[in-house]
Design a protein around this nucleic acid. Structure first.
Lengths: 169, 169
DNA sequence: ATTAATACGTCAGTATACTGATCAATAATC
DNA sequence: GATTATTGATCAGTATACTGACGTATTAAT
């Protein structure tokens, strides 16, 4: 209610402290959010025409490996909470990419399967998806990429329990 | 429509190929999404009670440095598209954290200011926010943290133009 | 066997993130 | 000066992500 609430402080606010701005833009969380945005953009660019998002692709990949895996297991496998996973799967089912089926052994459970259309999309996306992942870290020297991926593994494994939807292997 | 669409393939699908599962879970984009989730969780945990998200904190920090910056500039400064930024700012305005004002020099422009309440929250959040960022990378050895942050800077700078809301400095 | 606890899925609500369209104000062009 | 183009903001729609609550089905405990 003193200095920053008055509009006539605009002029001299143009160059307060470049270092402080840098401090904001170099926080770990900030850079992680940015890199996530960048990867999603690269993924959607490489995979344009399929209209499949990175998370959808992760789910399809996992269902392809484990046909009949239920929603709860799928969520735990890729680190997506059950509410979000149900949303994504419902969308893919509506588009005839996935199919859900009530399990006989437990009527609470819904098992997920790829349709033939879904398997075809997955196959066709293999190369563009690989490129998107590669481009995300291509600015690093080859040696640096391995170091970076190693660090990411360390951090995600260490932080796994702290996230709301931990990956359960 | 052959192997994966039949529910009686569940049993033998239990252990298809551990290596393939690993391949999914070690893609760059996958780990980036996970680390982003983890950081947000840590941030919300450290800053519980304030009900301020990481992006909201970024905006508040930037407005504190540049009072009167308009929405378009703010979005470019922190890498958030204008539609999203307008949403976030509108929410913070409703909670009396920020204040918007129509600029005299250009009636299209809405300048953003912190309220006193907003500045107080920002001040009080300084330490918990710092801890959240620190904890996000604390699993790395001290030397590894610098390397990791350096790699993140390289990647976000290189990928900046590819994202839909590039940071403009 | 009934009750209690747990598990799976869903729903409602909220937040970030993006797209594409629209509208009003400004800037550029003729 | 009138027309055109550009810009800032908003709106509608969609997607991931999470919370808390609910209902139903299963399992555990009594």
């Amino acid at each position: 209610m003193k200095n920053q609430s008055s509009p006539d402080t605009i002029a001299e606010a143009a160059e307060p402290d470049q270092a402080w701005t840098q401090a904001i833009l170099e926080r770990p969380g900030f850079l992680i959010r940015r890199l996530h945005q960048i990867h999603v953009s690269l993924f959607m660019e490489e995979c344009s025409g399929f209209d499949i998002t990175p998370v959808q692709y992760s789910i399809m990949s996992m269902v392809s490996l484990y046909p009949g895996k239920d929603q709860h297991e799928l969520g735990q496998a890729i680190g997506v909470d059950r509410a979000t996973l149900a949303n994504v799967v419902a969308r893919l089912e509506k588009r005839d990419v996935l199919r859900r089926e009530n399990a006989q052994h437990d009527r609470r459970v819904k098992q997920v399967f790829l349709t033939q259309a879904g398997q075809d999309i997955l196959d066709q996306m293999s190369e563009p998806a690989r490129r998107a992942h590669a481009r995300t870290i291509e600015a690093l020297p080859v040696k640096g990429r391995a170091q970076f991926m190693s660090a990411m593994k360390t951090l995600t494994e260490a932080g796994n329990i702290h996230s709301r939807a931990p990956v359960k292997s």
